[in-house]
């Protein structure tokens, strides 16, 4: 059953990537526990607007946990305290009356802050551009049934392909490494027979681009897996390490 709770928010406010940011404290009163976290922020923003205070900027779009747009660090945890959940699917029943909630943007050199909680994750797009695709042109592709794919392989590819590209893995990694994101994409394509011809160049190029973007290095602490809203396994990172090792020999 839903009830009303009062919260104190400590929110990171920052004009843009060049100016320094700071925390501001806001009260969030009468929050319905059935609200989602973003709906709670909506309510706070409505109030701030009425008081002529600039509302808090935060990225969001689908609000059903699939587009990967939303995401902040809530009390030190990317996407908040519930496992396998994006911020938009986090509900206020997971908080208690009177609780202090600290909200910060995903922090990483490769994710510069745009405004308040919104960050620039275009580095992920550039990693995909470096090889996260299968080079087939639109046109007469062979009949879908001409290439059977082992169910196990297809399912594993799907497990990896579920990544929503939200960047929580980077935010949660103590080194701001993007290995979970990169490995999931590499593996999705590498394990399928369609993706095999480009396996080596894809693997090498995506890792190169990842380094170039200024992400950190994986030190096998597995914080990424714990923060991933799609619970993508770190075994993908092991597979990337392996394929990268093998791809050095062409």
């Amino acid at each position: 059953m839903s009830k009303k709770i009062n919260l104190t928010l400590k929110v990171w406010r920052q004009k843009n990537c060049k100016s320094p940011g700071a925390f501001e404290v806001y009260e969030a009163k009468g929050i319905d526990t059935d609200m989602s976290f973003l709906e709670m922020l909506d309510v706070v923003n409505e109030r701030l607007t009425k008081e002529n205070i600039d509302p808090i900027s935060f990225d969001h779009d689908c609000r059903e946990g699939i587009c990967g747009t939303c995401g902040s660090v809530v009390n030190g945890q990317a996407h908040g305290p519930v496992k396998g959940t994006t911020l938009c699917q986090l509900h206020m029943r997971n908080f208690t009356d009177g609780q202090l909630i600290v909200i910060e943007p995903f922090r990483a050199k490769a994710f510069p802050v745009i405004n308040d909680l919104a960050v620039d994750r275009s580095s992920f797009d550039r990693i995909i551009q470096s090889g996260g695709f299968i080079s087939i042109k639109t046109g007469q592709a062979p009949d879908a049934h001409s290439l059977p794919v082992l169910k196990g392989r297809s399912d594993s590819a799907m497990d990896a392909a579920q990544c929503i590209g939200c960047g929580a893995c980077v935010a949660a990694c103590p080194n701001a490494a993007a290995m979970l994101f990169v490995s999931a994409k590499v593996y999705h394509l590498n394990i399928l027979p369609q993706g095999e011809p480009e396996l080596k160049t894809r693997t090498i190029n995506m890792v190169k681009q990842m380094d170039k973007e200024g992400f950190g290095n994986c030190s096998n602490e597995y914080e990424c897996e714990a923060a991933c809203p799609k619970e993508i396994s770190v075994s993908h990172i092991a597979r990337l390490n392996q394929q990268h090792r093998k791809s050095n020999f062409t």
Partner: peptide, 18 residues
Amino acid sequence: RAAGGLKRYAVDNSRGPR
């Protein structure tokens, strides 16, 4: 450098197996 310095988040509260 990638993490933007040693003091990263105001709350240190990792969820994983670290």
